[in-house]
Design a protein around this nucleic acid. Structure first.
Lengths: 195, 195
DNA sequence: TTGTATGTAAACTGATCGGTTTACATCGCT
DNA sequence: AGCGATGTAAACCGATCAGTTTACATACAA
């Protein structure tokens, strides 16, 4: 199925909001970036917030697919794949144009104001925890969900804090911490690692 | 030295911004909460952003003093004091009115737009790392700064993620992770004393 | 060919908001 | 008493912005 006009708008709006924030970005900026008219935008979305919600849902699926893809390319055991997530973020921070986690950003700007947007962000968080829980189970952790939660805190912490410190080594420090937790919880048998 | 009018405005503005956010809060909301006139506000601050910057600086000193105070009350060894930070955040999340880290919030909303505000946030982050580095050194860590950085990532991650999940156990999971790191790096002698 | 759906361009509306200005009250000081 | 500093109250200005409406172009199916 080819991309519809609506999809095109959402994808473009996502990158505009990602770079410039939500409240600080007028709808006109989205229009300018997409080359679309205001009339068309409001044909597909009743309000700006509805567009933001769609952008978060787009991020939920696109970012998770991209992460799954990338960590599979970088490592072939669950341990290496979890650690690869931190490498990816470290590299993004080093690249200089990193704007953090779209869901965290949206959640913060609309906190307590837009239930639909909050729910979309929650969906992303749940999917992320599910993916990491799966990897932890695969690695033989006794309590995969509990370990996954610790990994997620480290990952999101590295994203937010590393971004604001503008320091890629923050994500590497988080990676080391994650490694210590994996060493503690994963079954002793892990193939040669490191990257 | 008694509190000046300026101090009063900053303190009140801090709690208004903390509860309602920055961009989403009109200056009039701050005035209403303080009972001050617009004229007076603009006598002490040239712009809204200058007021926000002052609020972040206020947070920098007030929050760190409050943390130092509270962890000293809760434990008397560096290990216990570091872990107490997570307990405090877990309790705040459980209380239900928790709005996260003021510096993270400000940094995110004004990212790339207000250098003065960004610098004030950086000041808070540096002070926080300094405090935790001190505790790590006191605990006998081989590389106190590196360990502190990991603790800070866990702490800020727990604050942001736990807040958005509305789940106090997130901070407790982070606490467990921190404990694992302390077990690894602190000098083996961890009897619950020392000051 | 004609009608309908889809699109752009742009003017417009109404509300919000940051910041200024005017007018007036109060208090402390000499 | 009188004066300057400090304060409130409130009208005001100009810009911004979400969302609507009008006008017009294009494509395509009956």
């Amino acid at each position: 199925m080819q991309e519809t006009k609506r999809d095109e708008i959402v994808r473009s709006a996502f990158s505009t909001f990602y770079q410039k924030g939500f409240l600080a970005t007028p709808v006109d900026a989205v229009l300018a970036d997409t080359g679309i008219s205001k009339r068309t935008l409001y044909k597909y979305f009743r309000t700006k917030e509805e567009l933001v919600e769609a952008a978060v849902t787009y991020y939920r699926h696109a970012a998770l697919a991209s992460i799954a893809d990338e960590i599979e390319r970088r490592a072939d055991d669950p341990r290496g794949r979890i650690l690869a997530m931190f490498d990816i973020k470290s590299e993004a921070i080093a690249a200089g144009d990193f704007s953090g986690c779209f869901a965290i950003n949206a959640r913060l700007e609309y906190d307590g104001k837009e239930p639909g947007i909050e729910a979309a962000c929650d969906g992303f968080f749940e999917d992320l925890e599910t993916v990491i829980t799966g990897l932890c189970a695969e690695g033989g952790a006794a309590d995969p969900a509990a370990l996954a939660r610790q990994i997620v805190v480290l990952l999101e912490g590295a994203i937010v804090y590393g971004r604001f410190r503008r320091d890629p080594t923050v994500a590497l420090a988080a990676r080391e911490a994650a490694r210590a937790l994996l060493d503690r919880d994963f079954k002793a048998t892990h193939s040669p690692n490191e990257a």
